[in-house]
Simulated assay, not measured.
Amino acid sequence: MNHDLEDDGLDDVLSSPRTPSTALERAQEQFILEWGRMSSNWGINRTMAQIHALLFVSGVPLEVNEIMDRLQISRGNASMNLRELMDWGIVRRFRQPGDRKDVYISDTDPYQMFLRVVRERKRRELDPTADAIREVLAMLPPEDETEDARVLRGRLEALLEIFGLIDMGFKHILKTDMTLDEITGMLKLKELGIEGMQDWDRSKQ
């Protein structure tokens, strides 16, 4: 995956002032603290979440040294978590012409950021779990019709149905090219029934 960003319309961001006011800095610090706490409750590395929060609220690209100073973390810790954030697709790295230092910036669109986080968590957590359930299901001999086998087979198949519904939700809602207006329009198709949904799908192809 290419994490580098050559030129993506960042002139306005690059020209923004780097030194926040005291009140602004306090507000940023509070958000960074809460974002890290919330993410930790979700099983996401707290430092990774705080780096993302810092980049998200700063409004300007930051160098590794600036991130280290602001969050009081080591270079190794900062570098490791920045790589992870780039793997998630919510932080990008680029270098200005004539400058040897890399700087980092967060995706500033909250909706797109949400989509990337949810998609990555699905890829890392839900998809492997669904695959594992299929493997367990395949271990059951088809000819085994004992009560215990029927119970296990039925419960595993029910779990896979739930994962299938989640996949369907991703296909219809969590697409990177969909806007909020399109999502709202799709949800309104509930009144039209399945046929209306199929017509909407064909119109998007």
Rank of each mutant, 00 (worst) to 15 (best):
M1W: 14
M1G: 15
M1L: 12
H3K: 12
D4S: 09
E6I: 15
E6S: 15
D7L: 15
D7R: 14
D8W: 06
D12V: 01
V13T: 04
S15T: 08
S16W: 05
S16P: 00
P17N: 01
P20E: 03
S21P: 04
S21A: 14
T22D: 14
L24K: 15
L24W: 07
E25N: 15
Q28K: 13
Q28Y: 15
Q28N: 13
E29W: 06
I32D: 11
N41C: 05
W42E: 04
I44Y: 08
R46Y: 00
M48D: 06
H52A: 11
L54Q: 09
L54D: 05
L55Q: 03
L55Y: 03
V57R: 10
P61I: 10
V64W: 07
V64E: 14
E66I: 11
I67D: 11
I67M: 12
M68I: 15
M68C: 14
M68P: 10
D69S: 13
R70N: 14
Q72N: 13
Q72W: 06
Q72E: 10
I73S: 08
R75H: 10
G76R: 12
M86C: 06
W88Y: 05
G89C: 04
I90W: 03
R92V: 05
R92G: 09
F94L: 14
R95E: 14
P97V: 15
R100A: 13
D102C: 09
Y104L: 03
D107L: 12
T108E: 13
P110A: 00
Q112F: 07
M113E: 04
R116K: 14
E120N: 12
E120I: 04
R121G: 05
K122A: 14
R124C: 03
R124F: 01
D127P: 01
D131W: 03
L137Y: 04
L137V: 02
A138E: 13
A138S: 15
L140Q: 12
P142C: 07
P142M: 05
E143P: 00
E143A: 13
T146R: 09
R150Q: 10
R153T: 10
R153P: 01
L156T: 10
E157D: 02
A158P: 00
L159E: 05
L160Q: 12
I162V: 08
I162F: 03
F163Y: 08
F163A: 00
G164K: 06
I166M: 09
H172K: 11
I173M: 11
K175M: 01
K175A: 00
M178Q: 08
D181C: 03
T184P: 00
G185K: 06
G185T: 06
G185V: 00
G185P: 03
E191W: 03
I194E: 07
E195N: 08
M197N: 00
Q198T: 07
D199H: 09
W200E: 11
D201S: 07
R202M: 04
Q205C: 06
